[in-house]
C-alpha cells in the first residue's frame, strides 16, 4: 500500500466520524441537551482553554497519574521480582496476589472511600493499585521465563552476580516488563479518569462531571476527547521508549 493511501485511510475514519456527528446534530436527530455538535465542542474547547480551566484540571490529573503510577509500577516491579526470585515470597503471597489481581480496580472504590476518604491519598492509591498488578505480573512472568541456558552460560564464565543481573537478567526481562509497564500506564489513566468522575474536587473527570451536572454536554465532550488524546499520547510515548530500549532487536 502506498504511504499516501495509508495516511488517507487512517485520517479518513476519524474524519468520517466527525462528519457523521456534525450531520446528525445539524439534522437535529437528537436533542442538543443529549448530543452537542462538533462546532459547539470546539467552541467549548476555546472557552475552557481561555479560562485556564482545562489546563488546571489536566495538570491536576497528570500529577495524580504521575504519583500513583510511579508508586504502583515501582512497587509492582519490586513485588513481581521478589515473587519470582524467592520461593518463600511466592509461597506466602502468590495465591493472594493471583486472587486479588482478578478483582476489578473499580470494585475497590467503595471500600477505599470508607478507609481513606475522598482525598488525594485515595486517588493515588487507586491508581497505584491499577498500575501495580500488570507490572508485578509482567516482572514475575518474565523472570520466571528467563531460559536456564542464560544462567548456565553465566555460570560457565563465572560472571559475578552484578554482571548476571545487569548484563543478562535485565536485558532478558526488559521487553516483557516494559510491555507490562505500558499496559499499566494506560490502565492507570483509565482508572484515574473514572475515579475522578465518581469522587474528586478537581481533575479532568471532575470537569466532565461538573459539565454533566450543569447540562454542559459540550464540556463533557471536551473531556472525552482530551481523555482519549492523552491516553493515546501516553501510549505512543511509551511505545517510543520501548523501541529505544529494544533497539538491538531491529539493529
Amino acid at each position: 500500500m502506498k504511504p499516501d493511501l495509508k495516511l488517507i485511510l487512517s485520517v479518513g475514519s476519524p474524519l468520517l466520524l466527525l462528519i457523521v456527528w456534525q450531520a446528525v446534530t445539524a439534522f437535529k436527530l437528537f436533542p442538543p441537551e443529549v448530543l452537542v455538535s462538533p462546532t459547539a465542542v470546539i467552541a467549548a474547547f476555546g472557552e475552557v482553554i481561555t479560562t485556564g480551566e482545562l489546563q488546571r484540571h489536566l495538570s491536576e490529573s497528570l500529577t495524580r497519574l504521575a504519583g500513583g503510577f510511579t508508586t504502583g509500577a515501582s512497587l509492582g516491579l519490586l513485588f513481581g521480582l521478589a515473587l519470582a526470585l524467592s520461593k518463600t515470597v511466592e509461597r506466602v503471597f502468590g495465591p493472594t496476589f493471583q486472587a486479588l489481581r482478578q478483582v476489578p480496580v473499580l470494585a475497590f472504590i467503595p471500600m477505599l472511600i470508607l478507609l481513606l476518604g475522598i482525598d488525594e491519598v485515595f486517588k493515588i492509591v487507586i491508581i497505584a493499585k491499577a498500575a501495580f498488578f500488570p507490572v508485578a505480573l509482567a516482572a514475575y512472568d518474565s523472570v520466571k521465563g528467563v531460559p536456564k541456558s542464560y544462567f548456565e552460560v553465566s555460570s560457565l564464565y563465572r560472571a559475578p552476580w552484578w554482571v548476571l543481573i545487569s548484563k543478562i537478567l535485565i536485558p532478558a526481562t526488559i521487553p516483557n516488563i516494559l510491555a507490562g509497564v505500558r499496559l499499566s500506564l494506560t490502565r492507570s489513566w483509565l482508572v484515574l479518569v473514572a475515579a475522578e468522575l465518581i469522587v474528586a474536587d478537581s481533575g479532568l473527570g471532575q470537569m466532565m462531571e461538573m459539565g454533566r451536572q450543569m447540562f454542559r454536554l459540550d464540556i463533557v465532550m471536551v473531556g472525552v476527547i482530551v481523555a482519549g488524546v492523552i491516553g493515546f499520547a501516553l501510549d505512543r510515548l511509551f511505545q517510543l521508549l520501548q523501541a529505544h530500549a529494544l533497539r538491538w532487536k531491529t539493529a
Binding site: S149, Y150, V153, K167, P171, A172, W248, K249
Partner: peptide, 9 residues
C-alpha cells in the same frame, strides 16, 4: 549445540 549468544549484545 546452540550458540547461546545473548541476542542483545
Amino acid at each position: 549445540q546452540d550458540h547461546r549468544l545473548f541476542p542483545w549484545m
